[in-house]
Design a protein around this nucleic acid. Structure first.
Lengths: 347, 347
DNA sequence: CTCAAAATGAGTTGCGTACCTCAAAACACC
DNA sequence: GGTGTTTTGAGGTACGCAACTCATTTTGAG
């Protein structure tokens, strides 16, 4: 009926006594400092293991006594998703300062590899951790690796650089996100057959490319009645997205589904409603913003795939902190889910 | 280009100097201890405010030096959702013990008000915080209020008791969850018209009743082509759910949608497949378990509404900890989202 | 067996707060 | 002006660990 999980009142002193060594030796083992014979190391580790000893984080943090500095490298410009991440970091300020953490926002042109790499290099040394919305490019990869080699903890945010030795990726599986979008469009269209349009920022962006890939996978295998039109590129800009989509809508009267892969949602929505087809076309897009929220409520958008920006911001900070402290990461907690948002479960 | 959020290096000493008082007085103000003249209080608070001083949580925790005990009061029996919460708490054990927290699992018959109330009363005194899956009943409400009055922090989990003075509710908005289920069933059924069945544990359970309410709302207002059959009660048991649903399926050949409000999913799925109608009926249920995961992959279930049990467990612990420490709660972080899970975004 | 190198013990200091005591000062009241 | 009460100052101790020094012991190589 009652079962207790995890209690510890042991201190380093207890471990030292149990292992038959001094406090100093336990400290050396605990921090991988040199000067301890291998078998002594084992004895100490065994004692730690046996008692499932965990250093008291509060005491450790206090003793270490260092304020930690993290930097968030984010795209300049007015991407609402990124602005939300910034906003959530702002909301954490009390939490942060109570832990003597400081977070610096650095905006830069993340689409220019050399600029981004330069920004990253400049951070080396004065930061304990960096979260970066990264472009996957050799020079960026090199810059990340340099940071890691300098002892800085690096987390990629939203968009990954799997080939770099970053410590962690905080973001969603974009192929799965695309698959989810595909399944939604297909199922919400229902029995009808017809054409499906895709508007993306650019197929050169890793996350967009992955989403399109997943989307096409599902369409091809599960919805043979729907044919996918060639991808339109709107560069995440409103006007351009509107233009290209308007042209496509004019040419195809039998479009029943639309997947907007990136930003540029205002343009996409305009094109749809100007053509008077906003209620007939199943429209699935990404991210919850003021606009997409309204479109969902109006019934123009049918579903949005979302990665909770607040969760993403907090997870990045927590992961950086855990990495800096040498604590384990709660993988399940830091995993970013693919949220399907419809009108009735708007957060 | 670079903007820094929140940095503090001030200590109590600095505040004392700034306010022209001693450390002891600042301490008295900070902890609402008596013996300080009102104008002195104001002077100290002003200094704290001016410097946006935050006590160092690590130092505070260390100085306080108390291990905290929390209790989770959960339903006995084999509810997989509750088992998952337990499992996630287990995974946190390192995190917990590093903070000198202990979590005790107490299982009890949460469906019997007096038994539940008795269990809660018994906890009074030896716990700093209690998370409880609560039934909404006067005696339970009284027990919760007693706990609160005794200084114990109380959080309701999954199922709320809004009339009690609990400090926080960790769980989803069940009406919205029901609405979401309704929207999914309606939209996934498509153009067809027909009947929709509902299987619930009991309409006496607050969360089930709320879900059904939300479901019916959406059905009535948005899907006039679908008629909802009277609610079946399966008491969250597999066999009973199977029996009542099998009987219903036998009587109605034109059932196109099914909403399973609570547990008992194995029985529901059996009834569907035994009738050979598992692929024709749109089936929406709750929670991700080994079984629902399989049903989703097989295409028997079309969508599951889920409240991330891991998040729920962690949020409950974090909220209790913040309450015990007197820290503010990050409401956005602790809010539990209604997740729509389909085959392609299975976590 | 010798001697240097390696391993270990013993100890100190400081991190920022909580919580406590005791004395001194300020104040109110008659 | 004396009394009693309230407010304040000064100081200490403890919390558990990190990080360091320095003396001492053990070890292994020659």
């Amino acid at each position: 009926m009652a079962e207790t999980l995890s209690q510890t009142a042991l201190t380093l002193r207890d471990i030292a006594r149990e292992a038959g060594v001094s406090l100093a030796t336990v400290d050396r083992v605990l921090h991988n400092r040199p000067g301890v014979r291998p078998d002594t190391v084992l004895r100490v580790k065994a004692a730690i293991e046996r008692n499932s000893f965990q250093p008291h984080v509060a005491a450790a943090e206090l003793a270490r006594g260092r304020a930690r500095r993290f930097a968030f490298v984010m795209p300049s410009g007015s991407n609402p998703f990124m602005q939300q991440i910034e906003a959530y970091l702002g909301e954490m300020s009390a939490w942060l300062s109570a832990r003597r953490l400081s977070v610096e926002m650095v905006t830069t042109d993340v689409f220019d590899p050399s600029v981004l790499a330069g920004t990253l290099e400049a951070l080396s040394g004065d930061c304990d951790g960096v979260a970066v919305v990264a472009l996957d490019h050799p020079s960026v990869r090199a810059a990340i690796n340099d940071l890691v080699d300098a002892g800085t903890k690096v987390v990629t945010l939203v968009s990954d650089v799997p080939s770099a030795r970053r410590h962690h990726y905080v973001g969603i599986d974009n192929i799965a996100a695309g698959r989810t979008a595909g399944a939604l469009v297909g199922r919400l269209v229902g029995q009808k057959s017809g054409k499906v349009a895709i508007v993306a920022g650019s197929q050169g962006l890793r996350d967009h490319a992955e989403r399109i890939f997943g989307f096409n996978q599902v369409m091809a295998s599960e919805f043979p009645g729907l044919s996918v039109l060639p991808v339109l590129e709107g560069r995440d800009e409103d006007e351009r997205s509107e233009q290209v989509l308007a042209r496509l809508l004019g040419r195809h009267a039998d479009i029943v589904g639309l997947y907007n892969v990136g930003a540029g949602t205002p343009g996409v929505a305009n094109a749809l409603s100007d053509a008077g087809r906003d209620k007939q076309v199943v429209f699935v897009g990404h991210d919850i913003t003021v606009l997409t929220r309204r479109l969902l409520l109006q019934g123009v958008m049918d579903a949005a795939i979302s990665q909770n920006p607040g969760h993403e911001a907090r997870a990045a900070v927590r992961v950086l902190l855990a990495l800096a402290r040498g604590e384990p990461i709660l993988r399940e907690q830091e995993k970013i889910r693919i949220d399907i948002v419809m009108r009735d479960n708007l957060p």
